[in-house]
Simulated assay, not measured.
Amino acid sequence: MSRTGISEIGPDGYGLHMSIPFDLWGQRGWANTEVAGETHYAKEIRGLLGKDFKASGSEISVTAQLMPEPQNKHDRNAVGVWSGGRQLGYLPREEAARYSPVLTALTAQGWLPQVGARVWGSEWSDYDERQASFRGSVQLDLAEPHMLVPANMPPAGDYRLLPTGNAIQVTGEEKHLDTLAPLLRPEGECWAYTTVHEVVEQPTRTSRSIVEVRIDGGRVGQLTPKMSSELLPAIRHLAEQCIHTAARAVVKGNRIKTEVVLYAARAHELPESWLRTAVPATPATASSAPASGEPSPGLDVASAASRTHGAIPPPPTGIRFAVPPDWPQPPPGWMPPTGWRPDPSWPAAPEQWQWWVPTWD
C-alpha cells in the first residue's frame, strides 16, 4: 500500500479500525527476515526510535504490520512494512512474491497481519561535522508462508487460546491417522488449532486425569501424565467459566507417520494478565483467517468489541448496512467483512438496533 493508501484507511474511522489485527503464527521470538528499502524511510525509522535514541546505536522491539500493495506500479506483489503509522520499508521483492498471496487473502477478509520486529538505528557525523547521517535497519519475526495461519477453523463455541510456549509432544497419534489426514500438507507441516480436555483413565486400581488432544472435535492423541499435570490447572480454570481450552499445534508427517506437537505455555508460566482476562475468544469462519487468540492484541480488540456491541448479524440479500449513531461513516457501499467487529472505543449501538435495512430506504 502506498503512503496515500495508508492515510486513506485511518481518518474515516473504518480503515485500520475495521481491520482486525491478526498476529501471524509461527513467530519464534527473534527477528531474522530483513526488510528492504530502509534507506528511503530513514526519517520514519528515526522517528520510531523516539527521544531515547542514542547516536551510537539504539534498538527497539515493535509490532509491524504487513500491508500488500496490489496496485503498486513497480511490483503487484509488493508488501509494505509499517509500524506506529510509519512505513519502514518493504519485503524484498523475491520474498514478497512468496508472502503476498497469503497476506492478501488475510487483508481481503478484514484482517491486519502483524509480526514482531526489531528496529535498529545509529547516527554519525561527516568529516566536516556539518551534517549527521542516519542508518537504520528493520528485521521481522516471520515464519514461512505456509506457517503463517492455521490450516483449520477455530474451535466451535467459547474457547481461550493458551499463550505460545515450548514444545509438548503428543502421544498416540498413530491410532488417529484418519483424523489427521485432512491436515497433511505438501510442505510436510502446518499449524492447527487443537483443544485440550481433561479425561479420567483407570489403568489400575486408581484413576488418574490426563489431557486428551482433539482437532476439529476428533481425538488425535493424549499427553503423558507428567505433561498433563502441566496443563490441567489451566484447563480446569477455564472449565469453571464454561470455556474450552485451545492450543496451537504443529502437525507434520505423512499418511503413514504423523506427529502432533503442542506449543503452549504451562500453567505456572501463564501471566496474571491472562488469568484475569479469561474471556472467550471470538471464532472466525473458514473463509476468513482464524482469530489468533492470546497473546494477540487482535483478539483483545475483537473480544472487547463483542462484549460491548455483540456480533453483527450476517446480511440477507437486497439490503445495506445501517451505521449506528455516532459511529464513523464508512465509504459508500461498504459492507462489514467476515469476522469484522466494531472498534471498542465507539459508542455502543442502541438497544435492538436494526443492523440491516432494505437498499431502497
Rank of each mutant, 00 (worst) to 15 (best):
M1V: 14
T4H: 14
G5T: 11
G5Y: 06
G10F: 07
G15C: 09
L16D: 14
M18R: 12
M18G: 10
M18Q: 11
I20V: 11
P21M: 10
F22I: 06
F22H: 14
D23C: 09
D23N: 13
W25F: 13
G29C: 09
V35W: 00
V35S: 03
Y41S: 00
K43Y: 08
I45D: 04
G47M: 08
L49N: 06
G57R: 10
I60E: 04
V62F: 01
E69I: 00
P70E: 10
N72Y: 06
N77T: 06
A78I: 11
G80K: 10
V81W: 02
W82N: 09
G85S: 10
R86M: 13
Q87C: 14
L88C: 08
E95C: 02
E95P: 00
A97W: 03
R98L: 13
Y99F: 14
T104W: 01
L106I: 13
L112W: 05
P113M: 04
V115M: 04
A117P: 10
G121M: 06
E123C: 14
E123M: 15
E129T: 08
R130N: 13
F134Q: 05
S137K: 12
L142W: 04
A143Y: 01
E144P: 00
M147Y: 01
P150M: 01
P150L: 00
A156P: 03
L161W: 04
P163H: 10
A167K: 12
V170T: 12
G172Y: 03
H176P: 11
D178Y: 07
D178W: 02
T179L: 01
A181H: 11
R185Y: 01
R185A: 12
P186F: 07
A192Q: 05
E198Q: 10
E201H: 15
S207Y: 03
R208W: 06
S209N: 11
D216V: 02
R219F: 00
G221S: 06
G221P: 05
Q222T: 13
P225N: 09
P225E: 12
S228H: 06
P233K: 13
H237P: 00
I243K: 06
A246S: 11
V250A: 09
G253M: 01
G253T: 05
I256E: 12
T258L: 09
T258N: 06
V260N: 02
V261F: 03
Y263W: 11
A264G: 12
A264R: 02
A265Y: 00
W274Q: 04
T277F: 05
V279C: 11
P280D: 07
T285Y: 05
A289S: 12
S292A: 15
S292M: 12
E294V: 04
P295E: 12
G298L: 02
L299M: 13
L299Q: 15
G310I: 03
A311D: 12
P313R: 09
T317W: 00
G318S: 03
D326Y: 04
P328N: 01
P330L: 02
P330K: 04
P331H: 05
P332V: 00
W334F: 13
W334P: 01
W334I: 02
T338V: 09
S345L: 08
W346D: 07
E351A: 14
W355L: 09
W356H: 08
W356Q: 07
V357Q: 15
V357K: 14
V357A: 14
W360C: 07
W360K: 13
